[in-house]
């Protein structure tokens, strides 16, 4: 009965077999369609929003828009104080969040004993990533602005955003470190390396693409944050730049800009959208375009750096 005749079992007709395969493959087709639809919803929504913003804002994008302070007259208003503020705040955020986050991640993965205390810390770090950003704003208002006396400054804002993205950097660092095969670690220890030598010579270099991606994703999140920055009291109308080091009379100190009042891109946008005049809505769209462009640039940089660094890492 079941003897094979020219490779095909008699108990199943070749025709039946083919029908079964066709039927089973329908599910593949179904899922492909479903997947493409899901993908399109996300991609198209962003594309439409971006195109809308671009069509409204692009006419306003000229050199003066970047070099002018905000003004009561929409046509003269620009984003100089906002983009300078955003870049300076991001600089503080990066300087604070990167060493802290990477160090915490490395400690948790390579040094910390695996016990319940580490587990509790781990859960806490993951939870921190889910805390609403306004809560960080309140914390920073009490801690940085009043307790430490940093005032409503670039320093306070930068540190607030650093706290906000710290969990992202820690989690990214840990994930990147975990992807390093244990055999590489053992190879290093077998050479007689200490834990620090292993971290410095192997763990950090090999996990840097992943860590870098995490940092930039965190920064891209921070650049658009508005709520915590408003909470600590960023000004919405600023017609001056933070003091440049060694410029002015008397000359400003190297770090005086840290304590200057400031505004950032999303606050500038928020301020313009709340105005009744239509011309300000155009300004907001133009600023939004610049902000999205800055974010895309950062993500592009993340992808490029990851590609460059990964080329030399093969297990």
């Amino acid at each position: 009965m079941n003897e094979l005749k020219s490779g095909v079992s008699e108990s199943m007709e070749l025709g039946t077999l083919r029908r079964i395969i066709v039927r089973a493959k329908r599910w593949d087709l179904f899922f492909v369609v479903l997947g493409i639809l899901s993908l399109m919803i996300g991609v198209l929504t962003f594309a439409v929003l971006f195109a809308d913003m671009a069509s409204k804002g692009l006419p306003r994008l000229n050199w003066e828009f970047f070099t002018s302070f905000p003004s009561r007259r929409a046509a003269n208003a620009g984003i100089l104080s906002a983009w300078v503020g955003t870049i300076l705040v991001m600089l503080v955020t990066a300087v604070a969040a990167i060493p802290l986050g990477v160090a915490a991640g490395v400690y948790l993965e390579e040094y910390a004993p695996k016990n319940w205390i580490t587990d509790v810390i781990e859960i806490n770090v993951s939870n921190l990533a889910g805390v609403p950003s306004i809560v960080y704003g309140l914390l920073a208002l009490g801690l940085f602005v009043y307790q430490f006396g940093f005032g409503q400054s670039i320093l306070s804002a930068g540190l607030t955003l650093a706290l906000l993205i710290l969990p992202v950097v820690i989690v990214a660092t840990r994930e990147a470190i975990r992807s390093i095969p244990q055999s590489v670690r053992e190879g290093s220890y077998a050479c007689g390396a200490t834990t620090w030598q292993t971290v410095r010579d192997h763990i950090l270099p090999y996990s840097s693409p992943g860590i870098l991606t995490g940092i930039i994703i965190g920064m891209a999140r921070a650049i658009g944050e508005t709520a915590p920055i408003i909470t600590i009291g960023a000004l919405t109308f600023i017609a001056f730049l933070p003091p440049q080091p060694y410029v002015g009379d008397p000359p400003a100190g190297l770090f005086d800009w840290l304590f200057a009042p400031f505004t950032v891109m999303p606050i500038q946008m928020f301020n313009w959208t709340s105005r009744p005049e239509a011309a300000f809505a155009e300004n907001a769209a133009a600023a939004g375009f610049v902000l999205v462009f800055m974010t895309l640039l950062m993500n592009g940089l993340a992808i490029y750096l990851r590609y460059r660094l990964r080329k030399n890492i093969k297990w």
Binding site: V184, G192, D201
Partner: peptide, 30 residues
């Protein structure tokens, strides 16, 4: 102990570094 006794593993586990640096590593840690 590991400085006096070295080890070769089951699966080759070179570091993702140059050939030179792979060999030099056990000297550099010293």
């Amino acid at each position: 102990v590991r400085m006096r006794i070295s080890m070769v593993f089951q699966k080759p586990n070179p570091f993702p570094k140059s050939i030179f640096e792979n060999v030099a590593y056990s000297l550099r840690v010293r």
